[in-house]
Design a protein around this nucleic acid. Sequence first.
DNA 1: TTCTTATTTAAGTAGGTACTTGAATAAGAA
DNA 2: TTCTTATTCAAGTACCTACTTAAATAAGAA
Lengths: 222, 222
Amino acid sequence: MGDQQEKDALFDALAEAAKALGNGRRAQLIDILGQGERSVDELAAEIHQSMANTSQHLQRLLRAGLACSRRSGTRIYYSLASPAVERLWRALRETAEAHSGELGDLVRAYVGDRDGLSMITRDELLLRLRQGDVVVLDVRPQPEYEAGHIPGALSVPFSDVKSRLREVPQGSEIVAYCRGPYCLYADEAVRLLTDEGRLATRLEEGFPEWKAAGLPIEHSAT
Amino acid sequence: MGDQQEKDALFDALAEAAKALGNGRRAQLIDILGQGERSVDELAAEIHQSMANTSQHLQRLLRAGLACSRRSGTRIYYSLASPAVERLWRALRETAEAHSGELGDLVRAYVGDRDGLSMITRDELLLRLRQGDVVVLDVRPQPEYEAGHIPGALSVPFSDVKSRLREVPQGSEIVAYCRGPYCLYADEAVRLLTDEGRLATRLEEGFPEWKAAGLPIEHSAT
DNA sequence: TTCTTATTTAAGTAGGTACTTGAATAAGAA
DNA sequence: TTCTTATTCAAGTACCTACTTAAATAAGAA
């Protein structure tokens, strides 16, 4: 007990979990899995990688204890191992953001200019929901909506917003949300709706943050 | 804006911070830096690595935005870049611990059996401090005590406990603390004191957790 | 049974990482 | 100035990682 070799082994094991997060593709997988469970082929499509490569990344997450999997017929569904993983991912983002400069530039390069974009916080949305004068739009892909969404939200995946405009109730303000701060679905939806003359706003954060705050969640009957 | 290449670059940058933590030696450095700033040679001695290798690890932490450094004469002192890093490190530990099994075994192998060890929580210690019937012992190395400690604590580094027994006031219960749950200094101090017939207890957590909880801290006049 | 689809495994390669050793800086002391 | 000490840099090597392609499983459908 207490010798250097064992100490090194302990810290190596802790570092294993960090290594699992230490790859851009796996970080994306964690971000997506934060929305709910997904199959390997869906995940491969999301991160634009081959099935083989995606499978290997997922198994790395499995081994590190960040993800878990279940088989259903011919498909295998992966999900985050515990809420602690969600906290770890958020802490990593906050740390990287505090290291001002580089990451900010990359976010700006990917996300573009959000200056003209109307945004509201979670607390504001809660208030408006109680008043009952907003329509909430979940613009993430359908499977993520089905795995869990803000109660009362309508599922209109980003790619369908334009064609399904008529389904969105008129008259009240629209609040769109997606995966989180690094997700553009809600941004684009708000821009599109605004162009159509609707009053639309983006929720600052995404579904995982809503869930992590302990707020109520609705699941689709399957 | 919004293309795959930029998205990959953004997540690669986030993964960079995780990669920096993804090495046992650097994880140890982060754990030690959580106690306060230290010079390169002190850190090299702590992790039992060469100066060159330690320096390279520290520069990796620097580049990733997890650490920062300042020069003072011929020495360069490294410290954590922000409290967010401390949160990240804690989240990583919690995640790894949730992945029951392997890590538990490694902790047990390094830490040994804590069953016979008397422990108190932070809240209990706060209560006892208010009652004024405890002596608090900081058994970490002197530089860590100087960089910040629990108010009123006496600095008796682990290696000196045996020879400096007389300095520890008799009559009241002793509470020893160190770096945190993976640190053995307080364990050993409590065993030693108990063998000498003193009433000694270990603080469950360490100094970084005390600091993170926003509790008061005392610094040595230098 | 054979066929199909989803996933994993195996093998190979280019590039990255963690150490080592020895030389180069950089600040202060003599 | 030279000497000393703390730190960094440079170059080399053994090992590890992220991807590729092609073959192997594994479950369900026909």
